[in-house]
Amino acid sequence: MFKSMINVYSEVEKLEKVLLHRPGEEIENLTPEYLKILLFDDIPYLSRAVEEHDKFAKALKENGIEVLYLEDLSAESIENENIKEKFINDVMEESYIKDDILKEKTIRYLEYMTPKQIILKIMAGIRYKEIGICEEYKDYPFIMHPMPNLYFTRDPFACIGSGVTINSMKTKTRKRETIFAKYIFSYHPILGGQNIPRWYNREDEYCIEGGDELILSEDVLAIGHSQRSDKEAILTIAKNIFEKGEKFKTILIFEIPKRRAFMHLDTVFTMVDYDKFVLHPNIEESIKVNTITYDYKNKQLIIKEDMDSIRKILSKHLKKDIKLIRCGGGDKVVASREQWNDGSNTLAIAPGKVITYERNYITNEILYKNNISVIPIPSSELSRGRGGPRCMSMPLRRKL
């Protein structure tokens, strides 16, 4: 299945392998009173969401891309009984279950399941009634929170060059999501044995999420300092990448507004071709960029503010004339509406070829007029989670 290590040196080169998570029971475990805590604005209809997600996977496969699933890799990583026991104990510790009797009952409930059943159940969440405890007088029916954000596989870990960042998520709700990456890269029969470099670890102090990590070329990374990613984490990643001899020479820090509507860099800015980007026009003037390079002699980062426009900054670092394609064509109402439904969150599967949500038809038409081949997918339910095709995918390998 995996012939070689992680290889992602571009946002747009031919996609070869990608990681998805098919929405599951965790979506059914959303309730109105806990939507805010679980970072949702609405409850998707699971059956339709799965249909839409399967069409997404089909579009990828029809374009020669190998689709792997988080739930499968995670289950394969805990086949060994000792590792399975360790995984369950780690999950219990991170689920903040303090009562020893409750913890013991939950462990017993899980330990006789198959590895795949364990993974899916932990993703879905565990209710009191499942371990024989009456829920009548419980304010909240779950012992263990569901993980409804998991179908956005971009965020818990990110492949950069030949390595990965196993991310420290900003919200308590999403912290546990990265445990699957920890076990995959430690114990998976193939990935776990490849000694893949880790540019960041989930135990590190500051927060970073994959939606803020973009690979613009073999030489240039862009990382968003956003609502969900701390500048200190970006600096740690930069230091690790430079000191461990990865190819990248420059890291651009994009300062974006710290608001839910712009939660990650890729919700307002994605690459669609070597020389083209789609951008939410409402933030074009507010984005600030700092450039990080490395002084190898003195072993220190060099950080400078770049005062040019986004287009000029990108043109300078990518050494080509860059074109910005504005979401919604720059129309204030259209841009706001389509941005809310992730009009700027495109997934490039090859240079000039992207997957988008079909509901953003005006932005899609503008992309088409700019010689971008668009594969639109249905998203009436998937979009309720506030993430687009890039959010729902984690490239493991792109062709150089």
Results as ranks from 00 to 15, higher is better:
142 F>V: 11
128 Y>L: 12
363 T>D: 00
274 Y>T: 11
223 I>F: 08
194 Q>L: 15
311 R>H: 06
253 I>P: 04
272 V>Y: 12
302 I>C: 07
235 L>V: 04
318 L>I: 13
339 Q>L: 05
258 K>H: 11
13 E>H: 05
206 Y>L: 05
48 R>G: 03
128 Y>E: 12
112 Y>P: 10
28 E>Q: 13
309 S>E: 09
67 V>T: 00
294 Y>P: 05
134 C>T: 12
362 I>P: 06
222 A>P: 09
35 L>G: 04
134 C>R: 11
100 D>Y: 14
381 E>M: 02
51 E>T: 10
34 Y>M: 12
232 E>S: 06
292 I>K: 05
336 S>D: 15
326 R>N: 07
135 E>T: 05
16 E>G: 06
160 I>N: 05
114 T>W: 15
145 H>V: 14
252 L>W: 04
206 Y>K: 10
142 F>Q: 06
84 K>E: 00
254 F>W: 01
353 K>M: 08
106 T>R: 05
38 L>C: 00
212 D>S: 04
9 Y>E: 03
109 Y>C: 08
116 K>W: 05
98 K>Q: 13
59 A>H: 09
303 I>R: 01
91 V>R: 05
111 E>H: 10
150 L>M: 15
251 I>Q: 00
219 D>G: 02
13 E>D: 09
321 D>V: 03
123 M>Y: 15
389 P>F: 00
328 G>R: 12
240 N>W: 07
319 K>E: 12
62 E>M: 14
61 K>P: 09
237 I>W: 09
73 L>C: 02
188 H>W: 03
294 Y>K: 12
132 G>S: 02
18 V>W: 04
169 M>N: 03
270 T>G: 02
121 K>N: 11
213 E>G: 02
377 I>M: 07
344 S>G: 03
236 T>S: 12
271 M>A: 10
321 D>H: 12
5 M>P: 13
223 I>D: 03
349 I>F: 09
311 R>A: 06
94 E>N: 13
301 L>S: 00
310 I>L: 14
344 S>T: 15
68 L>F: 14
308 D>T: 11
258 K>M: 04
331 D>M: 02
125 G>A: 07
95 S>I: 11
368 Y>D: 06
97 I>D: 04
